Amino acid sequence: MAEQVALSRTQVCGILREELFQGDAFHQSDTHIFIIMGASGDLAKKKIYPTIWWLFRDGLLPENTFIVGYARSRLTVADIRKQSEPFFKATPEEKLKLEDFFARNSYVAGQYDDAASYQRLNSHMNALHLGSQANRLFYLALPPTVYEAVTKNIHESCMSQIGWNRIIVEKPFGRDLQSSDRLSNHISSLFREDQIYRIDHYLGKEMVQNLMVLRFANRIFGPIWNRDNIACVILTFKEPFGTEGRGGYFDEFGIIRDVMQNHLLQMLCLVAMEKPASTNSDDVRDEKVKVLKCISEVQANNVVLGQYVGNPDGEGEATKGYLDDPTVPRGSTTATFAAVVLYVENERWDGVPFILRCGKALNERKAEVRLQFHDVAGDIFHQQCKRNELVIRVQPNEAVYTKMMTKKPGMFFNPEESELDLTYGNRYKNVKLPDAYERLILDVFCGSQMHFVRSDELREAWRIFTPLLHQIELEKPKPIPYIYGSRGPTEADELMKRVGFQYEGTYKWVNP
């Protein structure tokens, strides 16, 4: 592979701008107003304001973009700056750019259920340069409990009458099928589907988006991507930290609602779906819905739930269990780990287990898709061969690698495990991989909904998990304890083995 010439960040961002501006969906010269509902909250200060700053800094926003914060707290732009700027990672050389960014910011205080507050917000936006005809993007960085009041008031008082209007809704989209349907029906009564952007930030990850290209742009994968060759698929999300004093919020939802029903299920769809007619948003989402419709409700015998306990040999936070978090209700049975087996009941995947695993306070930070292939028929190497695996590593250190057998150097035919490896950090030294939120917010500006969740996708996802969630809430089974920093409950490994996964433990990928 030829040595790549190092590029400056300015040059890299210039390439990104060229890609972005050559499309006809990006209205570079139009006025846009980006409204952050819930501007005083954690999500706004840690993710949304920093993301908008990065896009502005790199010249990736339309030229005439204004940012308006809205929340109940009586704040000023200076207050917003004070709480969000520490997350910007701005350099001293960017000081003038930073001043320009905050000059485009404003803030309006108001209630979430008060019509007069929204009329005041609308008047404020109209007073901005060309504000009355601007395109408006409303980001709901809010708890779902206020979605209905907020969307109703936005629709009645704050819509642009000339430009387009788009609304970005953060997960969780309800707690179960019934609450999700209620919320979807409410929002759909106010906005068209092409105006609604239900954001799952995992769909903005580079390697998640790469799944489609790997599958449908490489001839070698087509013939082997089926039940005849693939023994099982494992989708993993692991965090090495616990709730760390923020367990009160987590306890309301648990690990299945927080990660599995959305992030992991979306990745499953991209692995299992048929080739779409095109890369058009609805063509892709149509195929994802077909996959979900082929999955039956989760069966309790295919589920393992766990909850982390303190590690007596650990240090600091590792010595504390979930129930030691003062914000967690006493005696909570909320799971911090889950392993679930699903089956896609169609011709391509009949009988292939899709194993979804996620948890907190585990032994490493990792998100990946792992396809394990069947054993080689007619073994001539005296059971020395391990199964081939194709691994798409989402985070950290984005990579695609194939675990395969090669001859060990020497005189004899002794096979050993090795890999074919594409590590993004080595291959793409001159490429700026956008943060997931950067990519998705740019998608909203461009009107691309491919990486957002459609209402029928959402409904099918909740259909699969709601009976299990209701059973857990009714019966309150005690989750299996696992030690902070471990791989999780051993019962999860036993479940995976029972459905056909072979864990060798003899080879570990190392970032080159």
Rank of each mutant, 00 (worst) to 15 (best):
A2T: 15
L7G: 07
L7F: 15
S8D: 10
Q11G: 15
G14K: 15
L16Q: 15
L16S: 15
D24W: 07
A25C: 15
F26Q: 13
Q28C: 13
Q28R: 11
Q28Y: 13
H32N: 13
I33C: 10
I36Q: 04
M37T: 13
G38L: 03
G38W: 00
S40L: 04
G41N: 03
D42A: 01
L43S: 04
L43I: 05
I48C: 04
T51C: 08
I52T: 06
W54P: 02
F56S: 03
R57T: 02
E63F: 11
E63M: 13
N64K: 13
N64V: 05
F66G: 04
I67T: 02
A71Y: 00
A71I: 03
A71T: 03
A71L: 03
S73W: 02
R74G: 14
L75W: 10
L75E: 07
L75V: 14
L75Q: 11
T76A: 10
T76P: 05
T76V: 09
V77I: 14
V77R: 09
D79K: 08
R81S: 06
R81A: 09
R81M: 15
S84A: 12
E85F: 07
F87D: 06
A90S: 13
E93R: 12
E94K: 03
E94T: 06
K95H: 13
K95M: 15
K95Y: 10
L96D: 12
L98G: 00
E99K: 10
F101Q: 03
A103E: 15
R104L: 10
N105F: 12
N105I: 09
S106L: 12
Y107T: 07
V108W: 07
A109D: 13
D114Q: 10
A116R: 12
S117I: 08
S117F: 09
N122E: 12
S123W: 14
H124A: 13
N126S: 10
A127M: 11
L130H: 12
L130M: 15
L130K: 15
L130N: 13
G131S: 14
S132I: 10
S132D: 14
A134K: 10
R136C: 10
L137D: 03
F138N: 02
F138V: 09
Y139A: 06
L140S: 07
A141H: 04
A141K: 04
L142C: 04
V146C: 09
E148D: 11
T151Y: 03
E156P: 08
S157Y: 12
C158R: 02
M159W: 09
Q161N: 14
I162M: 13
G163Y: 08
W164K: 07
W164Y: 15
R166N: 05
R166W: 00
R166S: 05
V169Y: 08
K171Y: 04
P172Y: 04
G174S: 03
R175T: 06
D176H: 05
Q178W: 13
S179R: 03
S180L: 06
D181K: 06
D181A: 10
L190G: 06
L190Q: 11
F191V: 06
Q195T: 07
Y197L: 00
Y197N: 05
R198D: 04
I199R: 04
I199C: 05
D200V: 04
L203A: 03
K205S: 01
K205I: 04
E206Y: 08
V213A: 12
F216H: 02
A217V: 05
N218P: 04
R219H: 08
I224M: 12
W225S: 02
D228Q: 11
I230C: 06
A231W: 00
A231Y: 05
A231E: 10
C232K: 02
I234V: 14
L235I: 13
T236H: 06
F237E: 01
K238C: 04
K238A: 06
E239M: 04
F241H: 09
F241C: 06
G242P: 04
T243S: 12
R246E: 02
G248S: 05
G248M: 05
G248R: 06
Y249D: 05
F250P: 05
F250H: 02
F250C: 01
F250V: 00
E252T: 13
E252N: 12
G254S: 07
I255V: 14
